[in-house]
Design a protein around this nucleic acid. Structure first.
Lengths: 208, 208
DNA sequence: TAAATTAGCGTACGATCGTTCGTACGTCAA
DNA sequence: TTGACGTACGAACGATCGTACGCTAATTTA
């Protein structure tokens, strides 16, 4: 029934397309999202799908924007209101690992997947991804710097080095979970994050 | 000039195909390697390319096998003859970061790229990748366990957790280098690796 | 020397890719 | 009531995908 749609329903359709695209991309990569496949999965025509975005590249950018928003909601916002510095940084790490452990995508965190897929390509998706991840790294570095100023972290902490390490550890949960079937990756990652922050282990074993 | 080829030259052709496939895959992913593109890049016919492997899946598996061999040569073999335990483990980390910093692929380490690309898919490539990465993790864990026994690492070290962390950190160099243009990722990664091993920093700042 | 093997080419196939049309229908403002 | 707008459809396009087949020619084996 063509044209049945109100503006409201059209927005719902757009969201449904992006949701499906993100789900597929988390498994097959952003390149694995084809318009024909989206159409089949949503029982729409190909032109009905692409009409909302104009081109595949715009669809990819919109999918990335959705995933960025979800990441922000699941990782940043739960920690946003904690005390700036180490408390908020640890809150971020906790929300981050919890999110990555159960991201709501069938193939693991979309952002991590696409980071590795598009890191060395050229084009607007790469550029937008670099911008998004750069902002996230800045957020982490700002938090680390505050924690150094308050004395919660060692004075010689290199914010860029630590932010890089936290990012690498969180991203590493994806292949660990799906390649090896590990179930402890969240706690593994949290322990490793404390280690790169040079914080003492949570449950220090009695030094024999 | 068809049929000019000796067995020796045929092996050279096969190697050239796999080399090119690995180069492309390091940037565009293993899925981005199409037979037509390989043929164009090598100035061959499509049938001449695929004839060496029979199917695209076999080509993918052969490419993965080549990359695994290169990884072994560049990361394991330089450290192989060091003293088992912490010395060899640190030697591995050093060769690992050096390799990842300059892997010989245009798009960064092939293994890391494909680990994230195929971690949550199904099929023979995923299975072989899981096997390979599982073996590598076992190698790391064995080395960690020895270092614990010799007292070079804390007695409460969780080998699986540490091996996971080292892997995540090394893989993280890829997007850091190509997404943000970082040039210090090798030293960042080595510092983070020492941290997850709970080893003191190499250049400890005077504790203020 | 004759036969078997094999690398590689050229062509063709069905399928799918992203994109571009023209059209139909429903909503909403004039 | 009419016209503009926007959603979605169906069909078609050129390109590329992986694969299959028959062929030539050189090497290798018997």
């Amino acid at each position: 029934m063509p044209g049945r749609s109100s503006v409201h329903e059209a927005l719902e359709t757009r969201s449904a397309i992006l949701r499906t695209a993100a789900d597929i991309a988390s498994v097959e990569g952003l390149d694995g999202v084809s318009i024909g496949r989206l159409a089949a999965e949503l029982r729409m025509s190909k032109s009905g799908v692409i009409g909302h975005f104009g081109s595949k590249e715009e669809l990819q950018l919109a999918t990335l924007a959705l995933a960025t928003r979800i990441f922000r909601e699941r990782v940043w916002e739960p920690a946003e209101h904690l005390t700036p510095g180490l408390p908020r940084l640890l809150g971020i790490c906790e929300a981050w690992t919890r999110y990555t452990d159960n991201p709501g995508y069938p193939g693991g965190c979309f952002i991590a997947q696409v980071s590795y897929e598009y890191d060395s390509r050229e084009g607007r998706v790469h550029d937008e991804l670099a911008r998004t991840m750069g902002l996230w790294r800045s957020t982490l570095m700002a938090e680390i710097d505050i924690a150094v100023e308050t004395g919660d972290l060692p004075a010689d902490t290199d914010a860029a080095q630590v932010a890089f390490s936290l990012n690498a550890l969180a991203s590493g949960m994806n292949p660990a979970r799906h390649l090896h079937g590990d179930t402890d990756t969240a706690s593994w990652t949290l322990r490793a994050m404390r280690a790169v922050l040079r914080l003492p282990p949570l449950d220090p074993a009695p030094a024999t």
